[in-house]
């Protein structure tokens, strides 16, 4: 459960800034700004969705500002933001 706003990542080239906040609506609402949106927007959203669902996060608002991050970076930033937003430490549990 996302119970507070949290973020992870930076706006450096090759990174992605993920901001997660609680949502009153059902589902994941992902807003993506990306320097590579044309070619990779679909993939980036998919990686964000899969990562969050894997962490059992199903309802949240996500603002993603991407500067050409690779999938591994996206997964890491999304996981870190989710841990901060839910208070659930996935690395420990």
């Amino acid at each position: 459960m996302v119970n507070k706003e949290a973020f992870a990542g930076t706006l450096e080239s090759g990174d992605i800034l993920i901001q997660i906040s609680p949502s009153e609506e059902k589902g994941l609402h992902i807003e993506l700004q990306s320097t590579v949106a044309y070619q990779f927007g679909r993939q980036i959203k998919q990686v964000i969705t899969e990562t969050l669902e894997g962490l059992d996060v199903h309802d949240a608002r996500v603002m993603a500002t991407d500067k050409g991050a690779l999938d591994c970076t996206i997964r890491a930033r999304v996981t870190a933001a989710a841990v901060r937003a839910t208070g659930k430490d996935v690395w420990k549990d």
């Binding site: 070619q39 990779f40 679909r42 993939q43």
Partner: peptide
């Protein structure tokens, strides 16, 4: 192998 297959440009 690192970036995945890019979508075609519009």
């Amino acid at each position: 192998s690192v970036i995945g297959q890019p979508d075609p440009l519009p």
